[in-house]
Write a protein that binds this DNA or RNA. Structure first.
Lengths: 322, 322
DNA sequence: ACATCTCATCGAATCGGTTCGACAATGGAC
DNA sequence: GTCCATTGTCGAACCGATTCGATGAGATGT
């Protein structure tokens, strides 16, 4: 390569990295040779010499209770954002657990790591602390000391739904959440949503109850609500995969939207009618996570928790109550 | 590291790779040092010297019409299988298209690539041919010359469903397939399933029609079938995300399972009643793909198309017709 | 005209492994 | 006791970039 352009290897490197000034003429010659030879620097050599692999690791969950399409949106947005800053993404699954982190860190395969689906007391967090590998969590554990986290402000999201319904005049609402297992393993976002919901309900003087819900307890949950909360007029659903069948179950009891006002948290399920909802801005979260990670990779960045403000979009599945 | 164990670097390398015989005593000493120091070889240095990165690329689709959970199952099984043979997985999205392949190949980032969601006339195929990068396709394009492909035998799957229904005495069946866009871009598996279905229907003398179906045409499709195929008794659904709402739509016309016999192709949707179906063996496909890729990486392997035999599991959503 | 400074480029060291040829020690075979 | 093969280990070259100090050529100041 260098020979083809008639310059030294170091010159080529400087043309590519721009770390020293190179004359325009030389730059052109080098670029032409690059083009002509289809030259691409050897990633391994580069990472060896520069101590940068230009790869980040993404740990994705593969638990059965996480909603896969949502996880995938995060993953795709992370890849897209990473590519935009010239980085590739190595896929780690939960399978290896903390050891996977140790491995990719120890072998210098990656410059940093993004961890999804963080639990309140996550086994990977101490490992990250001990590893001095730049990392960003998507999600918020209990103890965030020294950590960099990004997430939607789920507490605010839960509260926003309550406020929306309360503003419309509702005084009897219920929250239908994630499968029980999600709460049992203390997944941050689920807990925080319920907390935000309950707090806001108290503040607004709204009668409220909350109910975990998995795909096969949908009917049960609906039955219970119809039976025990006869005055119920508002429903907040934080359970994307089940919202469809949940509304069907209510319909069988004669309760249909918008007679029953419904607000969803999460991506809007394709279906009629379109639901009033707080969207989950996966693209933004992914992009922010990558941005923060890059900051940490070059330069000692400030740790901290970034919570994205929820945005509620009214779509007429929630209506005024006298 | 080498110094800590009192041996030369090459000896360490041979202990790790096993490419030369090393005395048991030395091996033990080296292993102890590895343990004590938490030593991990530098991936870049290794790939530079050995011309092997021990990383494979996985190109995953992110089109809106592919069913994400299914794609994810493939991805996870590929990662798992790759880890089992000491390889990591680099995630590429469709975003970069063929250039992504060129990039990772040119920079020697990966030893091979697995491509998912292959179309009949896929733009990435010629690139793969030109790249001399070991590759395996999950899916089958039109021209498979020189390619290594793995997939479920979707034609056989489509046929198996027809045979199952025909064996049960059905003579009027319909096939509800993927969204129109999937056929328009000529995705291999979708085309082959319909072909297998139609062929088998002719062979068994069954009256058959096939119908693309997207989430928002579910009702339309059901209406059409009820109206135009009054004698319909058997339904084959190759559309995981919509099967639930499709059956609901039929139910509204008074046609319920198992009065209407239903056979699904794809992962069984969680719900009652459990459907008779041909499962999509994602784990096996992923593992096979990785296995074949490893063969190609070390050793000139034989190209060819591997089609996994479909397995139909009767689950009583399809019943005898007099 | 001379010292100084800047700009562009080069050479050499370095990153941390792998691999091959060489070599000493050991053990049989004759 | 010599010769040869085998086994275990080492040394050195090499993989292909990056990076830093050095250097030569011009430009600038005086």
């Amino acid at each position: 390569m260098a020979r083809h352009a008639g310059v030294s290897p170091s010159t080529v490197s400087y043309v590519l990295s721009g770390k020293r000034s190179i004359s325009e003429a030389t730059t052109r010659r080098v670029r032409e040779s690059i083009e002509a030879l289809g030259y691409q620097p050897h990633a391994g050599a580069r990472s060896l010499a520069s101590r940068r692999s230009n790869v980040i690791a993404l740990v994705i969950p593969l638990r059965e209770d996480v909603h896969v399409p949502v996880a995938m949106r995060f993953a795709v947005s992370v890849v897209t954002a990473a590519r935009a800053v010239d980085h590739d993404v190595l896929l780690l699954t939960q399978g290896e657990g903390p050891d996977g982190l140790r491995r990719v860190a120890g072998s210098a395969m990656v410059d940093g790591v993004i961890v999804m689906d963080v639990e309140a007391d996550d086994a990977r967090v101490p490992v990250l602390r001990s590893l001095d590998l730049p990392s960003v969590l998507i999600g918020v554990p209990e103890d965030t000391e020294g950590l960099t986290c990004v997430d939607l402000d789920f507490a605010a999201a839960g509260a926003a739904c309550v406020h929306h319904l309360a503003d419309l005049g509702h005084t009897e609402v219920a929250f239908v959440g994630q499968p029980p297992s999600v709460y049992e393993r203390r997944t941050g976002f689920a807990e925080r949503t319920v907390a935000g919901f309950e707090e806001a309900a108290v503040a607004r003087g709204v009668r409220a109850t909350s109910h975990p819900c998995s795909p096969d307890t949908v009917r049960e949950v609906a039955d219970t609500l119809v039976r025990e909360r006869p005055g119920l007029t508002g429903l907040i659903v934080h359970n994307e995969p089940s919202v469809g069948s949940l509304l069907d179950a209510f319909a069988e009891h004669g309760l249909t939207v918008p007679e029953l006002s419904v607000v969803a948290i999460g991506p809007v399920p394709p279906g009629v009618p379109p639901l009033t909802s707080v969207d989950l801005p996966a693209e933004e979260v992914g992009a922010r996570a990558v941005g923060l990670l890059m900051d940490k990779i070059d330069g000692p960045a400030h740790a901290g928790v970034t919570l994205l403000e929820p945005r509620l979009t009214a779509r007429r599945s929630a209506t005024t109550r006298a």
